Simulated assay, not measured.
Amino acid sequence: MTESPATENLPDLPEVLAEIRDDFLALGEKDRLQLLLEFSRELPELPARYENAPGLLERVEECQSPVRAFAEVDDAGLVHLYATAPAEAPTTRGFASILAQGLDGLTPQQVLDVPDDYPTSLGLTHAVSPLRLRGMSGILGRAKRQVREQLAGA
């Protein structure tokens, strides 16, 4: 049974996240996994200020692989998610890449409004393990918490 929910029944998302979701849902299960692997090769590089201080990025404990992430609200009030994930963990790296690209440039409120179940909306529940999906949810949850903390400290 192929998983392909009608996109009109899905929650409103920021444009990039909606496009990513729709790209996944337009494919069959095997091709979705291939798309996830493509995303793994597109994880943005860390800015130099984080490259030399990886401890600034928080470990995502829900991920089996050593993933670190940090959501930053810049001076213009826009969010950027920075993440690292090993190349030998392409599924996890793909999820980190999706979120890094999908959350980049959003307002804090847009990030906070992303549904917690966004990872399951990609139609990968049969292609990857629940543990891996929980890892992506963990990255999203960390990003939201970090954004809230920065707003509270501002």
Score class of each variant (00 low, 15 high):
Leu25Thr: 12
Leu25Tyr: 09
Leu25Phe: 07
Ala26His: 10
Ala26Cys: 10
Ala26Tyr: 08
Ala26Asp: 15
Ala26Phe: 09
Leu27Trp: 04
Leu27Gln: 10
Leu27His: 08
Lys30Tyr: 12
Lys30Met: 13
Asp31Met: 03
Asp31Arg: 11
Asp31Val: 03
Leu33Pro: 14
Gln34His: 14
Leu36Asp: 09
Leu36Ser: 06
Leu37Asp: 15
Glu38Ala: 11
Glu38Asn: 14
Phe39Pro: 05
Ser40Gln: 02
Ser40Lys: 03
Arg41Ala: 11
Arg41Gly: 15
Arg41Ser: 13
Pro44Ser: 06
Leu46Val: 15
Leu46Gln: 07
Leu46Pro: 11
Ala48Phe: 05
Ala48Asn: 09
Arg49Asp: 13
Arg49His: 13
Tyr50His: 13
Ala53Asp: 12
Ala53Cys: 00
Pro54Ala: 07
Pro54Ser: 00
Gly55Arg: 08
Gly55Ile: 02
Gly55Thr: 04
Leu56Ala: 09
Leu56Gln: 13
Glu58Leu: 10
Val60Asn: 02
Val60Arg: 00
Glu62Arg: 10
Glu62Ala: 12
Glu62Val: 09
Gln64Asp: 07
Gln64Phe: 07
Ala69Phe: 01
Phe70Ala: 14
Phe70Ile: 15
Phe70Lys: 12
Ala71Cys: 05
Ala71Thr: 11
Glu72Met: 02
Val73Thr: 12
Asp74Trp: 00
Asp75Asn: 09
Ala76Glu: 13
Leu78Arg: 13
Leu78Cys: 03
Val79Arg: 00
Val79Gly: 00
Leu81Cys: 03
Tyr82His: 11
Tyr82Val: 07
Thr84Trp: 03
Pro86Val: 06
Pro86Ile: 05
Pro86Phe: 04
Ala87Ile: 11
Ala87Ser: 15
Glu88Pro: 14
Glu88Trp: 11
Glu88Ser: 15
Ala89Asn: 05
Pro90Cys: 04
Thr91Trp: 02
Thr92Arg: 06
Thr92Ala: 06
Thr92Met: 01
Arg93Tyr: 07
Gly94Pro: 15
Gly94Thr: 15
Phe95Gly: 10
Ile98Trp: 04
Ile98Asp: 04
Leu99Lys: 00
Ala100Asn: 02
Ala100Thr: 02
Gln101Tyr: 04
Leu103Met: 07
Asp104Val: 07
Gly105Phe: 04
Gly105Pro: 04
Leu106His: 08
Leu106Ala: 01
Pro108Asn: 00
Gln109Phe: 02
Gln109Ala: 14
Gln109Gly: 06
Gln109Arg: 02
Gln109Trp: 00
Gln110Val: 05
Val111Ser: 05
Val111Leu: 04
Val111Tyr: 00
Leu112Tyr: 00
Asp113Gly: 04
Asp113Ser: 10
